[in-house]
């Protein structure tokens, strides 16, 4: 039973990591590409880290919670770096897709 939960978490995490990178690869402009990595990867890596914490807590004699630290750190830093990258992209007037609504000059 425990192995099933662990495997499910690992597969979900890896899947969302992959979706984030697919978004980075296939979406047409920078501002749209920004969405893939900032969201999909936080949940993907978050699920993997939870799986790691569970695995080490149940398979060694002590509880292992330090993976939570990386999760919290990523959840705090991912939006900050996304915000700064978007700001830089607006600053250097990067092209946006034609169909963007209220596009910024």
């Amino acid at each position: 039973m425990f192995e099933w939960i662990l495997s499910a978490l690992i597969l979900i995490g890896a899947f969302f990591t992959l979706v984030g990178s697919i978004g980075l690869y296939k979406l047409p402009d920078f501002f749209m590409r920004l969405h893939g990595p900032t969201k999909a990867t936080t949940l993907g890596v978050g699920a993997l880290l939870i799986a790691s914490a569970l695995y080490f807590s149940f398979n060694t004699d002590q509880i292992s919670l330090h993976e939570v630290l990386i999760t919290i750190f990523l959840f705090i830093t991912a939006p900050v770096s996304a915000h700064l990258m978007a700001k830089a992209a607006i600053h250097i007037k990067l092209k946006q897709v034609k169909r963007t609504q209220n596009s910024i000059e």
Binding site: T17, R33, G36, A78, I92
Partner: peptide, 15 residues
């Protein structure tokens, strides 16, 4: 463009 490359590096380290 340059921001695309920065974003790619960002994704690379998370991966």
């Amino acid at each position: 463009d340059v921001p695309d490359r920065i974003l790619a590096l960002d994704t690379l380290y998370i991966n």
